[in-house]
Structure formats: C-alpha cells, structure tokens
Amino acid sequence: MGVIYILITISIIVAVFFLYAFIRAVRSGQYDDDYTPSVRMLFDDELKIKTKTNKKPIQTIKEKQV
C-alpha cells in the first residue's frame, strides 16, 4: 500500500499545478474582460476571406493579442 504516498503526492502536485495556472491566468488579466473574446473568436474567418481579396499589402503584424 506504499503506493498511496506516491499517488497522493502526484494528485497534490497536479492540483498545485492547476492552482498555479489559475493564478497566472488571473494575473495576466484574461478574466478582466469576459465578453469581447467570445465575440472576437467569431471574426477570424471573415477576416481571412477579406484579406485574400485585398489588393493592398497585407499587414503582417499579428492581429490579435491575448
């Protein structure tokens, strides 16, 4: 039954990892605006169709920043 030490240690490490991920996500400001990204994700396709037909040089700078 000594394996229980290993298993519980692993489970705690996983949980700590998620806690860390959560805190990092909050700190980066992801949750400050919980509406706009949901709308924005629907745009990308339209943008590509449009930029293909665009005769002007296409801006190569990354369009979205998260």
């Binding site: 400050d32 605006d33 919980d34 509406y35 706009t36 709308v39 924005r40 629907l42 745009f43 339209e46 943008l47 801006q59 700078i61 990354k62 369009e63 979205k64 920043q65």
Partner: peptide, 27 residues
C-alpha cells in the same frame, strides 16, 4: 455591438502606423 468590435480591431487597415487595437467591450 459586434460590428463595433470588428471595425475597431481592424483599425490598422485604415491607418498605417497602428499596429494593433483591442476592444474591451464591457468598458
């Protein structure tokens, strides 16, 4: 509305010099 978000996040197409623009809708 969503059109507002879309146009304001594509400002770089209207004016060179703008690299990115990001909308915060609730604010």
């Amino acid at each position: 509305c969503s059109s507002c978000i879309w146009i304001l996040e594509n400002l770089q197409k209207l004016q060179s010099g703008i690299s990115t623009s990001q909308v915060n809708f609730p604010e």
